[in-house]
Simulated scan of single mutants.
Amino acid sequence: MPVAEIRLAADRVLDSAEFINRTSQDVSVPLNGVKAAAQKIMQRMQQIGYSTAEWKKNTLTPSVADSAAIEWIFVVDSLNFSFWTDKPQANQYTVSLDGQAYRGYWTLCAAVNRAMREGIPITDAAYCAGITREQVSYIFRTDDTETQEPIPMLDERVSVLNEIGRVLLEKYQGKFSNVLRQAQGSAQRLVEMVVRDFTCFRDEHMYMDRMVCIYKRAQILAADLWACFEGKGQCQFADIDNITMFADYRVPQALCHFGALNYSERLFNYLECKQNGELLESGHPWEVEIRGNSIWAVELIRRQITALGMHVNAILLDFYIWDYAKEFADEMKGIPIHLTRSVFY
């Protein structure tokens, strides 16, 4: 892969975010809000000593940085999309493990770990390539099939598993560790290879007659590997600071809470009413504006914190803001979340 191509690929997401911010009709990034958010976030991160070590503190993520962890992270990040629900908690998709009930993203981790304990080779490329709908349904079964909803987008998850298994077998001897090896210590190159070879990671959309790139799951894949290995060994990415935040639906809510993201009145009202239950389609201009401006807002927060003397990258900022949004969810109930059924987040 030519060096020039790698350089362009590394800038595509941030270039897209800046373009989206510059041309947005209904989402903006107030600079005063960015400065205030940067101060608050920096102080809090320093106070609690927030670092990559936070990633391993959850009992569901790999505790040992080894080849098995690499394959686990790839499978989980391949399936890391669409866990939101509009159901009451009692009816949400739920997976229990070791006496703990999980919802949202953590159901994915719990279900994968449960499958591995049962001897199901969910991280094996050959198994994924031939996995059936029935097998995926069993692996991601909910605690109570009578009262709880099933995992969203089951058919899409089958398709994703089939694709990643097939591509790994055809191009990488069945191991994602070989993709990582070919990236040669570059997070940018890793993201480029992933979006090139695995279509399910190709988070691209037309906006204002221009193709924009967001690459949420491809970038979080590089970030999770970096966090798991704490920036060492195979995941000592010299260019890790070029990775942007991971535009989903929870972080934009928190950015609005911090005052670093602002919605127009018509967009806010739409999200609050949700048009009688209608969802924003993937690639809708409003969805692209929310996600693109979230990337740009975090980038400006990162620059502001750096100017204040603390080194931080967009990955740690995203991890921190996402954790904050979950911890203080009750405080943000007045800020509507945009909801889109998508394989991209």
Rank of each mutant, 00 (worst) to 15 (best):
R157M: 13
A183Q: 09
N162R: 07
L180N: 06
Q173T: 06
A187V: 01
A187P: 00
N162E: 01
Q182N: 15
R181M: 14
V158M: 13
L169S: 14
D203A: 11
K175V: 06
E163F: 03
M153P: 07
H205A: 03
Q182R: 15
V167W: 01
E163P: 05
L154V: 07
P152G: 07
R202T: 11
E192P: 01
M193Y: 01
I151T: 11
Q182E: 15
R166G: 07
R157E: 11
P150R: 08
R166H: 12
C200R: 05
F201T: 03
K175C: 08
Q173P: 04
V194N: 00
L169G: 05
E204V: 15
N178W: 09
V194M: 00
Q188I: 06
V191C: 01
F198K: 00
I164S: 06
P150Y: 12
F198P: 04
L168D: 02
G165I: 05
R196E: 02
G185R: 15
F201G: 01
S186G: 07
H205I: 02
V194I: 14
L161M: 13
Q184T: 07
R157K: 13
V191T: 00
E204R: 12
K171M: 12
L180F: 10
E156I: 11
V167Q: 05
V179E: 09
L168W: 00
E149M: 14
M193Q: 02
P150Q: 09
E149D: 14
P152K: 08
Q173M: 07
R157I: 09
R202N: 15
I164L: 12
R181Y: 14
D209W: 05
K175M: 04
N178L: 08
R196L: 02
E149L: 14
F198S: 03
T199I: 15
P152L: 10
A183I: 02
V160E: 07
L161A: 03
G185I: 12
S186H: 07
Q184Y: 10
R157T: 09
V179M: 13
F198W: 07
V179T: 08
D209I: 02
L168S: 02
L161T: 07
M208H: 01
F198V: 01
